[in-house]
Simulated scan of single mutants.
Amino acid sequence: MTATKIWTIYLSGEIHSNWREELEEGARARGLPVEFHAPVTNHGASDDCGVHILGSEEKKFWHDNKGANMNAIRTRTLIERADIVVVRFGEKYKQWNAAFDAGYASALGKSIITMHGDDHQHALKEVDAAALAVTQTPAQIVDILDYVIHGKLN
């Protein structure tokens, strides 16, 4: 009996909507053999983890630097282990960290799927050029995962 591969998917980017939950629910509904990972999506915890664990900083730069470095341990590790990296660019904020994650994943030769609206198309043209698929909805990503894993269309 052959074991089914469990695909590891890293979900990078925007943290202000429920796109991750929609994607995970869609994959679960189709019974896809996937395991999802993500950055810490609690904004306060992500921003303050460094000073909470390692001590306060007088200057905001060093406060942010401690947190960014601690978050990078998680992000780098999970991107390196991922089979596919999904990068979501939201409407409300510029996600510089998501663009960095996409570049890091690209440098590692990872398969990248981006997700954003038409209004970001021009700004993200280089990121999209590195992606193997450019999507607008979690449902499209679920369709891609289903096709890639099973090799057939629904």
Rank of each mutant, 00 (worst) to 15 (best):
G55F: 13
C49D: 02
I53Y: 12
R74N: 04
K59G: 03
M70G: 07
D83L: 05
F61M: 02
D64E: 14
C49F: 03
A72E: 03
V87I: 13
W62Y: 15
V85M: 08
T75M: 06
G90S: 06
F89S: 03
L54D: 13
N69Y: 05
H52M: 11
I84G: 01
D83F: 06
I79P: 01
N65Y: 15
H43P: 03
I53G: 00
G55L: 07
E58T: 11
T75H: 02
G55D: 11
R81Y: 01
G55T: 08
N65Q: 11
E91A: 09
E80D: 13
I84W: 11
E58W: 02
L54A: 14
R81S: 09
G67M: 00
D64Y: 03
T75D: 14
I84H: 01
K60V: 11
E80Q: 05
K92V: 10
A68M: 09
E91I: 04
V86D: 03
T77W: 05
G67D: 01
A68Y: 13
N71H: 04
K59C: 06
H43Y: 10
G44Q: 00
S46L: 05
E80I: 04
D83H: 15
D48V: 00
G44S: 04
S46R: 15
A82P: 03
F61Y: 13
D83A: 05
M70T: 02
H43S: 12
I79V: 10
S46N: 10
T77P: 00
F61V: 10
H63N: 12
